[in-house]
Design a protein around this nucleic acid. Sequence first.
DNA 1: CTTGGAAAGTCAACAAGACTGACATAAAAT
DNA 2: ATTTTATGTCAGTCTTGTTGACTTTCCAAG
Lengths: 166, 166
Amino acid sequence: MAESGTSGENLLFLTDEQLRKGIEAMFFAYRGFTADPDRILAEMSYGRAHHRALHFINRSNGTTVNNLLAVLGVTKQSLNRVLRTLIADGLVESRIGQRDRRERHLFLTENGAALERQLSEAQRARMRAAYRSAGPDAVAGFRRVLEAMMDDASRAQYLALKESKS
Amino acid sequence: MAESGTSGENLLFLTDEQLRKGIEAMFFAYRGFTADPDRILAEMSYGRAHHRALHFINRSNGTTVNNLLAVLGVTKQSLNRVLRTLIADGLVESRIGQRDRRERHLFLTENGAALERQLSEAQRARMRAAYRSAGPDAVAGFRRVLEAMMDDASRAQYLALKESKS
DNA sequence: CTTGGAAAGTCAACAAGACTGACATAAAAT
DNA sequence: ATTTTATGTCAGTCTTGTTGACTTTCCAAG
C-alpha cells in the first residue's frame, strides 16, 4: 500500500510452484519456530498449550479467562485444564475481579515469569538470528506477508495486541 | 547476503518488543495458514496429519514410508495410523518395492489426488492473496526470514524438495 | 549356507490436548 | 425475580503424538 503504488499488484504472476514453496516454507519454519521452547517444556512435562497461556498472560498481565479464550481460540474446558495445572504448580495466580467479582484476573507469579522468560528467550534467540541473517528489508516483508495471511479475527487480535503495549 | 553487503547485520538493533511482535505474527499467521484446509478436513473427519501426508506424497510421488517419516518428523507408528486410513479409504496406494521388498512406495489414487488438490488450492488461495497484497519485495523477504528460521534438518529437507521439482 | 543383526513396516496401548455437552455457582444486568 | 454472563467442572470422544513388542525382509559375517 505504501510505496508499491497502485499498479504493483497486477504485475504479480504467481505459479502454483511458487506458492507451494511458500506453503512448505511455512510448514518447516513453524517447526523451527516451536522447536526450542518445546524442548524446554518437554523436560517439565508441560506442552505448547502451557507456553501459549504463559505467553499471553505475560503479554497482558491481569487479563481475564474470557480474554485469554478469545486470543487463544480454544474452548474454556481446554484452557481450564492448562490453567489448573499452572495455578497448582504456582506459576499463575488467579485473582477475583474487584469491579466484577465473576471475573478471574490472571497474573504470572515469580516462578511463572521466570519460566516465561526462559521460553520466550529461546524463541527470541531464534527469531533474532533469523532477522539478522535476513536483513531489515526482509523482516519488513516477512511481517507484511504474515499479517496478510491472518484471518480477520486473528488480525484484529494481533493488531490490538500490537497497539496495546507499544 | 546478496545486496545488503557486509555491514548490514551490525546495524540491526532488535528490541524484545519487535521480536515479540514477530513471534505473535507467526502464531496468528500460522492459524490463518491452516484454517481453510482444516475446515475442509473436519467435514470428512480427517485431520491435519492426513493433509500433510497427502501433500508430501503428491509432492514426491512413489516415496517410501521412511522418506515420508523423515520429512514429516513424526514416528512411523504415528504416520502409519494416518496412512492406514488413507489406504483403507482409497486415497493412497501402497506398493511393495521391487528392488527392496521391505519398502512400501506410496502413490495418490485419483480420489487422493482430487482431495489433495482441493486442500492445497484452498491454502494456495490464501497464500496467493497474501502475496499479492504484500507485494513481490515483501514475498522475497518473507521467504528469506522463514528459511533462516528453520532448524538445520528442516532447512536441508526444504531445500532438497525445492530443488527436486523445479 | 546359515545365522544374526539391521531396516521397514505393522499392531497395541497409552498420553496430551483439542473438542462437545451437561451442569453448577456466583454475580451482574434487566 | 429472572435472565444473562463469567467461570469452573465432570464425562466422554477424537486426533495425533508417544513407546514397546512384533513380523518380514534384506544383507553380511562366520
